[in-house]
């Protein structure tokens, strides 16, 4: 019997290798409505590029069977619109009320009782604006010899005094030799009751 052909037909190893295409797996021809082609092609291109770059593709959602096409994209509102809608204003914002120069404003925490008379208690949060000019009479954050302190600034005839507002504390008279930096001007104090 002549049952072996040694010519004609498919030769082993010839042709395009299996799974060598852009998708590296078997493909299948399907019919697609023309109106959907535009929306399907991009996904296939994305998949193709992901296969090409060697990035493994995982499906993000488990349920892949159903294909639902949204019919309505906007919801229909039922019921009356709120009569207040037309009168909505921004809620009150403490930031805009208390802070004039956002980029120059820092919060610091008060320690000690030396400014009790000015309403500054231990643990209060002070709002400090670095951009303001430290005028006489302002409460300031000062740096004396490298240490921070909060005091009321007094300038008189070229003499500078940092005054405490508590009789138990002494004022700081600034001599020419001391190094004094006014770090910022206190604009508000936030005192929270326990």
């Amino acid at each position: 019997m002549m049952n072996t052909h040694n010519h004609g037909g498919a030769r082993k190893g010839a042709g395009r290798k299996k799974n060598s295409g852009s998708f590296k797996e078997d493909t299948k021809v399907i019919r697609v409505p023309i109106s959907l082609v535009e929306s399907i092609l991009p996904s296939i291109e994305v998949y193709k590029s992901q296969v090409k770059t060697g990035v493994e593709v995982l499906l993000t959602k488990e349920n892949t069977k159903e294909l639902m096409i949204p019919i309505f994209t906007s919801r229909v509102q039922a019921g009356f619109p709120s009569p207040a809608d037309d009168h909505l204003e921004d809620a009150l914002d403490l930031n805009t009320h208390l802070i004039q120069h956002k980029d120059a404003t820092f919060f610091v925490k008060a320690q000690g009782d030396s400014m009790l008379g000015a309403g500054i208690h231990q643990g209060d949060i002070l709002i400090v604006d670095k951009s303001l000019t430290p005028k006489s009479g302002k409460i300031v954050i000062a740096v004396v010899d490298g240490e921070f302190t909060v005091k009321r600034l007094h300038k008189y005839k070229g003499n500078i005094t940092l005054k405490a507002e508590n009789p138990e504390f002494e004022d700081i008279k600034v001599n020419g030799t001391d190094e004094l930096i006014i770090w910022g001007v206190v604009t508000s104090v936030i005192h929270q009751y326990d």
């Binding site: 929306s39 996904s43 296939i44 993000t60 959602k61 488990e62 994209t73």
Partner: peptide, 14 residues
């Protein structure tokens, strides 16, 4: 959001 062709779990509104 790009529509995901492979998992049309689209009851979540765009």
């Amino acid at each position: 959001r790009q529509q995901d062709l492979f998992s049309m779990n689209q009851d979540s509104q765009p």
